[in-house]
Amino acid sequence: MLNKKLNIKVQKQQLRADLLEQRRKHDQEFILNQSDKMAENLYAWSCYQQANTIMLFISMPDEPSMMKIIEHTWRQGKTVCIPHMRQQFGVMDAAIIDNMDSLVRGRFNLFVPDPTHLKVIDPESIDLIVVPAVAYDYAGNRLGMGAGYYDRFIPQASKAVLIGAIWSSQMVDCIPSNQYDRPVHYLLREDRIISCDVGKV
């Protein structure tokens, strides 16, 4: 069993390195254009329209941009929350943000919820979580950055619909997984939304 776990870890590390190298080649024009298409697909999706509380994320420079989606979600009168990383490695909460002033520069120079005015939300109250990743396969298996934040958080949000945000170019046939990995229900891409149950819209 130990050898199997080690083998999965090594496979993931190699796949992560290869796909991050590929993702980092995208220029800003590509990222913004594809992110706009992704956003339009989300706005038209019934699960998004019906959700009252949505967990999004603040994107790294080479990830799909969530800024327009966050602003649109506010305009729709919905509650927006994003990850707040605790001091304990690998553990996060969902923190409500009301506007861009709710964010400050944090680790890795990324915007994070202001820790002096933190409004943590019960994960059970989240209707929809948009989950970032380095890659997904068509079964919804996720390859993250390796710290396990979402794998630990998602089981606490048992009522939430999970949709992975991913470029179609970052899709792979199969991602090695174990019992701790949490697949998503849908995939949000620039061309369409895919159900991971059936591999189609």
Rank of each mutant, 00 (worst) to 15 (best):
Q170S: 13
K78T: 12
L6Q: 14
Q76C: 13
N7I: 09
R24G: 02
K68S: 07
C81Q: 11
R75S: 15
N7A: 15
C174W: 00
N3R: 10
H185N: 15
D93M: 08
D18L: 15
V91P: 03
K200F: 05
T116N: 12
D137E: 13
P155E: 01
K78C: 04
D101G: 05
S35M: 06
S65T: 09
D98M: 02
G144T: 02
K9E: 14
I175E: 03
I193C: 05
P115M: 10
P132A: 09
F111W: 07
Q34L: 09
A135H: 03
S177P: 01
Y43R: 11
L42H: 03
D122L: 04
L42F: 04
E71I: 03
I96V: 15
D197H: 10
D98H: 10
D191N: 11
E63S: 12
D27H: 07
K9C: 01
Q179G: 05
L6M: 12
V198K: 10
Q50R: 11
I126E: 10
H185W: 07
D197G: 04
H72Q: 14
E71P: 00
W167F: 15
I8Y: 13
I8L: 13
A44G: 06
D18G: 03
L187V: 02
F111T: 04
R23N: 04
L42T: 02
A51N: 08
L6V: 04
Y138V: 02
Q11E: 15
I31N: 08
A133N: 07
T73H: 08
I96M: 11
E29R: 08
M1P: 00
A44S: 13
K25Y: 06
I82Q: 03
